[in-house]
Design a protein around this nucleic acid. Structure first.
Length: 506
DNA sequence: ATAGGGTTAG
């Protein structure tokens, strides 16, 4: 009977039915059977049944079986019942590495990513009573990837090397992702190059990393090399390849891959693939094609899909389609503040100030709160945070003086502020007459100020960067001879010698 | 024999 349960790893339905049969026959499950059936409940999404199993576990007196409780904890975490998961953790009598790992995984799923790093700290310093293992490292690297926490990620890499996990492929794959998403595509590539046996995940991570950095043709080269090496691409690989085409404006290549993924690799396009194509077509101005593609899908577009198209309408000042897209979002009851900001920018980009005022008034009436732009910059392990027109930084006087000085220098080099892009969020409202300082400008000025000449300036921003700040950064990189890497909401902009690796605003 | 896990649109 129990042997059958171990099979239930892959046959959750069968495992679950066996448990029922067991209960019917009045056989008392042992901790092992409980563990199996709990996992089956996760796999077949049976919340209620899982709760019943937990109740039974407690009734049968397995409160001190921490291995079993770890599985139960993961069950709660899987269904986003974080308080329940933490309660199980708190009540455990012993907590081994796996229990701590489940806690980290729970934090990451719950958006408490920073706390995942705190747990790693506790484990490494011995305060938890358990040492991090390879899975801990994998999870914490995921957290670093999400946070863009490069220094912490490097620390985890040292731990990996010092503890003999350096050869583990999944850890190398996670490191490739961490480095790319922290803006170090070069280090990601070194990691990738150093791997003796790359699998489809390694290749996909590398291709996606090149993609978000705007290295479209390198990403496509990597894809071709992957095929030559006999590694079969999967859905995710094509997501990476199409995203590379999108970030680099490679329309023909995009269509070719989009067709080939079905005809030659038998992979049906999913919502991510369509999303990349809509973004690709939209960015280069083929808005109607993008719209038609959405309408041609066999499944319903989600709000994000419409938002992608709305973003393209903003770039190209396409008012009519923009209004239609907003209608679709309203229909889905999914409109957000950011969508109205985009609509505002569409109107302002074509100089329709009446509409701008109308939408803004309407937003005010409805009490729609926009997300304030916020940029962060790490200097010597310390994170400095800036918001639009920020006056809170202790070195604000120096920063604003530096911005004025930079402004003068850039003007000499030919920089002209773009007023339309000033309407980035409500914080910058009605400031079109004077230069408003978006958070990334403040962060960049601080970077020039606080780091020695020649140091790369790394800025992370919570929203998309605007055309004006993008121009500003380009000029800044040339005039001050600095490499500037800005991570915005969905990609990296690497500014060097007056150019950007992206072609979002050409 | 049992627990935790890599890549992934905008």
């Amino acid at each position: 009977m129990i042997r059958a349960y171990s099979l239930s790893e892959t046959f959750s339905e069968e495992g679950f039915n066996l448990y029922r049969e067991m209960r019917r026959k009045g056989i008392t499950p042992d901790p092992l059977s409980f563990s199996f059936v709990t996992k089956c409940c996760v796999k077949r999404s049976s919340v209620l049944e899982g709760l019943q199993v937990h109740a039974r576990v407690l009734r049968d007196g397995h409160r001190s079986d921490s291995r079993l409780l770890t599985t139960v904890m993961d069950f709660y975490s899987s269904f986003k019942r974080f308080d329940d998961a933490c309660k199980v953790f708190d009540e455990m009598s012993h907590r081994d590495t796996v229990a701590w790992n489940v806690l980290i995984s729970c934090y990451i799923r719950n958006g408490r990513t920073g706390d995942a790093l705190v747990v790693f700290d506790m484990m490494e310093s011995g305060h938890s009573g358990s040492q991090p293992d390879d899975v801990t490292c994998l999870l914490v690297l995921q957290a670093c990837t999400n946070l863009g926490a490069l220094e912490f990620g490097e620390r985890v890499r040292r731990y990996i090397q010092e503890h003999g996990y350096g050869h583990l492929r999944n850890l190398c794959n996670a490191l490739i992702a961490m480095y790319s998403r922290c803006g170090c595509v070069g280090k990601a590539y070194q990691m990738f190059k150093g791997m003796p046996n790359r699998d489809v995940v390694s290749w996909t991570a590398m291709i996606s990393g090149l993609a978000i950095h705007g290295h479209g043709s390198e990403a496509i080269d990597a894809f071709r090399e992957m095929l030559r090496m006999g590694v079969a691409p999967d859905e995710q690989t094509f997501t990476g390849v199409l995203s590379a085409c999108s970030h680099s404006g490679l329309v023909d290549e995009g269509w070719t891959f989009f067709d080939h993924m079905t005809t030659e690799f038998g992979i049906m396009p999913n919502i991510h693939h369509y999303g990349c194509m809509v973004d690709l077509l939209g960015r280069v101005g083929l808005l109607d094609q993008a719209y038609q593609l959405i309408l041609s899908m066999s499944f319903s577009p989600d709000p994000t899909m419409w938002r992608t198209l709305l973003g393209a309408c903003r770039i190209h000042g396409h008012v009519a389609l923009g209004e239609r897209v907003i209608e679709h979002l309203i229909e889905l009851k999914a409109q957000e503040a950011g969508d109205y900001v985009l609509l505002l920018n569409i109107y302002s980009s074509v100089g329709n100030w009446e509409k701008v005022i109308e939408v803004r008034k309407w937003m005010k009436e409805k009490g729609i709160q926009t997300t304030p732009g916020c940029s962060t910059m790490e200097v010597k392990g310390e994170v400095h945070e800036f918001v639009v027109d920020d006056l809170s930084h202790p070195r604000k006087k120096e920063i604003y003086e530096m911005l004025d000085e930079i402004g003068k220098q850039l003007k000499i080099a030919g920089y002209v502020a773009e007023v339309t892009s000033e309407l980035h969020n409500s914080g910058a409202e009605e400031k079109a007459n004077r230069l408003s300082y978006h958070s990334e400008k403040l962060a960049m000025a601080f970077g020039i100020l606080a780091t020695p000449p020649g140091t790369t300036i790394r800025v992370a921003k919570n929203l998309r960067t605007c055309v004006d700040c993008h121009n500003f950064a380009k000029m800044l990189s040339g005039v001050y001879n600095r490499e500037i890497i800005v991570r915005d909401r969905n990609r990296f902009h690497c500014f060097r010698e007056g150019q950007c690796s992206c072609n979002d605003y050409w």
